[in-house]
């Protein structure tokens, strides 16, 4: 075996490893994307039919179901998916997004309980969560694409963040804004599907 052949083996193996990690992330993008689309449609229809915005509290169930499904998928895999720095950073990005989104939502919910008589509560509750969350969602997706060195994920993140905010200004702050998350979920799921087949 020559030095060049040795180097070719090392390069090919490292590339295949990276592809495997990106391909595996596609599965989780699909799972979270579908879950996001289903939740947003559920909240939208319940809000629309009952007229109660309180159905937004259902969103707190999304991370619970998502993490339970992730655990189930991982435990049912026949082989151990190799974990490395890249996959850990990618997981960290989405965990950070989850913490931010849940914290902001919880913060607004708690201040909302203070009622309309409280001036601070009125200001905080008037902050539109949807464009804020969809923007950091898109940002998280794009950073994920940068870490995984994948252009499809980078562009999908930009479309989700910028497109989501644009849709918000078109649909307004009513129940229709839930469809922004349907859009974000579909983009995420399609991205996952593309990535999965990109490295098949």
């Amino acid at each position: 075996m020559t030095a060049n052949e040795s180097l070719a083996i090392i390069t090919e193996t490292l590339n295949n490893n990276r592809k495997e990690i990106v391909r595996n992330s596609g599965k989780f993008f699909m799972m979270w994307g579908i879950l996001l689309a289903v939740f947003s449609l559920l909240v939208y229809f319940l809000w629309k039919t009952t007229g109660k915005a309180a159905w937004n509290n259902l969103w707190f169930g999304l991370p619970l179901i998502g993490f339970a499904l992730s655990y189930l998928i991982k435990s049912r895999e026949a082989t151990v998916r190799a974990e490395n720095f890249i996959s850990r950073v990618n997981g960290g990005i989405w965990s950070a997004f989850g913490v931010f989104a849940c914290s902001v939502a919880l913060f607004c919910l708690l201040f909302g309980l203070l009622g309309k008589d409280n001036a601070l509560a009125v200001i905080i509750v008037s902050v539109s969560l949807t464009p804020l969350i969809v923007l950091i969602f898109g940002l998280a997706e794009t950073i994920s694409g940068v870490v995984l060195k994948n252009w499809v994920i980078k562009i999908a993140g930009w479309i989700t963040g910028i497109g989501g905010v644009a849709i918000y200004f078109i649909t307004g702050a009513e129940k229709e804004q839930m469809l922004i998350f349907t859009f974000a979920g579909i983009v995420l799921a399609v991205t996952g599907l593309i990535v999965k087949y990109q490295y098949k």
């Binding site: 490292l14 990276r18 082989t79 151990v80 190799a82 974990e83 490395n84």
Partner: peptide
């Protein structure tokens, strides 16, 4: 090469 890039692999 595989093991150098990951924490562990089965």
């Amino acid at each position: 090469s595989i093991l150098a890039g990951v924490d562990e692999a089965d």
